[in-house]
Design a protein around this nucleic acid. Structure first.
Lengths: 290, 290
DNA sequence: TCCCCTCTGAAACGTCAATTTCAGCATTGA
DNA sequence: TCAATGCTGAAATTGACGTTTCAGAGGGGA
């Protein structure tokens, strides 16, 4: 593991975007430098990610001029400039609600708050499904369906409820299910029953809980099969997880939405029940009666 | 002008996108390689434009594993992989119908269980929104936002988790929130603190809980403002409720889906927070610190 | 027309990043 | 419990890329 330093700011002083900065200096640029600017704006921002030689070739100038161009923009080096571009792109895609809020401001006519909210969550579900690797989902369901070993569910401040919901169902499908208190899960008496090969499902969304990370570390030490259900920014718990299921939660308002997590849990339960049906049906039948 | 060669295809054989390719091989990846995949998917595609060392550091693995990862994807070198990413990004921004192409990463034919499940739930949400009277929704949010009197949340066997989730958020927005144990809520000591004008939110879905009905009756007797969140067949508790919010839960398989209930609860929380913002913001601020 | 100044690109340079190697380690099966 | 296999990351190696230098081209003024 490298000790990579990510503190250094790529952008010199102001927080201007690369594109804005180009427009600012455009008029002071020399002829060849302008061609560099044209080239970059022509296929923005991808050309900036290319090596200098390619940038130069596409723009029809020499490498040296490209370097002079980025220096004009205020960047100390070409890699510096590229980093700025990356951070910018990241920033843009980190708020997919630009679409949901900026795109249909008037298109929705007089749909009510509730309609809009539910519609956005519906879109969220589809997008979440698309970004979750099927193999991970299937692997988890299969493992849960096996029914061997223990199965420990751990949630955070808000996601504890989701864990509880999962527990209530999973108990009926397979034995050995129990829920740990997320806040005290690090304590030895909580983890003492965790054995090698046990499944541990951890729910962690922003703002990530340091205690959960600690718990995950302990679980990894105990050779538990750790599963993480998290948000699009992916909790640091992923370091210790065998399976990671990221859900979209961003809403842009006060609360993030855990609807996708909840629905994913239901999907997991449904799939697990299906896979374990021979055993589960008998179990459910006897428990329902009792 | 450099003699830069741009003829060489970065992508080996098929025209698959990097993202699609990741999902394809995800199953065959080793543990550390999966971390790389998650890292990239977590901030896609920007992390792929970073130097190998940074990619590795962010994903929590070594540089060597990153290289092995891109090799698994079928790229002959890291720069080769980066070029594929660039071409992909360019392609997307060149056509405004990016959605139509980028949205269905998996063809309609081989939709997986998870895709189908999420799609059905998405449809459920829209249908649920359509059948809930806006006036009821607004009335509830407004009443909750007032913040006067107590607010009691009661769930059933499975819906107790939904009630817990609502409690966790509502506590931050307004005072007087508490959750009753659904199974023992009829007992006098549980109901003794309920006063006239208090809000009581009851969650009840099939198979309807006789105890909850009894509790609702008692609450009505105490002049509580009773709200019912239920399924499409509508719990008998509705007899005692001032507001009824029906959600679609039918799935046709073993378990009914409470996803719509959960999402509705989030919508209620969001709307309430919005309406109560002046008071709620201060409250949230002070509670977050403590 | 000639000279000077600025801009420009080719080539040399040195650095840093991608790649390869290898030893240690965890994980799987007997 | 032990051996074998395959995964993993640290360090060494190589090569590529960004950077610098400098000679010459282009253009404007005297």
């Amino acid at each position: 593991m490298a000790d990579y330093a990510e503190d250094e700011r790529a952008v010199p002083l102001d927080g201007l975007s690369v594109e804005a900065r180009i427009h600012d200096v455009m008029m002071e640029l020399t002829a060849a430098e302008k061609r560099a600017a044209r080239g970059l704006l022509g296929s923005y921002p991808t050309l900036g990610f290319a090596p200098v030689a390619e940038f130069a070739a596409v723009s029809g100038i020499s490498s040296a001029t490209v370097l002079r161009f980025v220096a004009r923009l205020g960047y100390r080096s070409y890699p510096d400039f590229q980093r700025a571009l990356r951070e910018e792109l990241d920033e843009r895609s980190k708020s997919p609600l630009q679409r949901a809020e900026a795109a249909p401001p008037r298109a929705d006519g007089d749909l009510h708050y509730l309609d809009r909210y539910m519609a956005r969550m519906a879109a969220n579900l589809s997008a979440t499904a698309a970004r979750i690797p099927i193999s991970e989902f299937e692997a988890l369901a299969a493992r849960l369906a096996e029914g061997r070993g223990g199965c420990h569910l751990i949630g955070g401040r808000f996601t504890d409820a989701v864990a509880a919901y999962m527990e209530a169902h999973l108990r009926l499908v397979r034995p050995g299910v129990r829920r740990l208190d997320g806040r005290t899960a690090t304590r030895a008496d909580q983890l003492i029953d965790v054995r090698a090969g046990d499944i541990a499902v951890i729910f962690d969304v922003r703002r990530y809980d340091p205690q959960l990370l600690e718990t995950a570390r302990s679980l990894a030490g105990r050779r538990a099969f750790t599963v993480l259900v998290t948000d699009e920014w992916i909790s640091p718990v992923s370091r210790h997880a065998k399976i990671v299921l990221p859900c979209l939660t961003e809403t842009g308002s006060t609360w993030d939405a855990n609807s996708a997590l909840f629905t994913l849990v239901e999907a997991i339960i449904a799939r697990t029940t299906e896979l374990a049906w021979p055993a589960a049906s008998r179990r459910i039948g006897s428990l329902e009666k009792g």
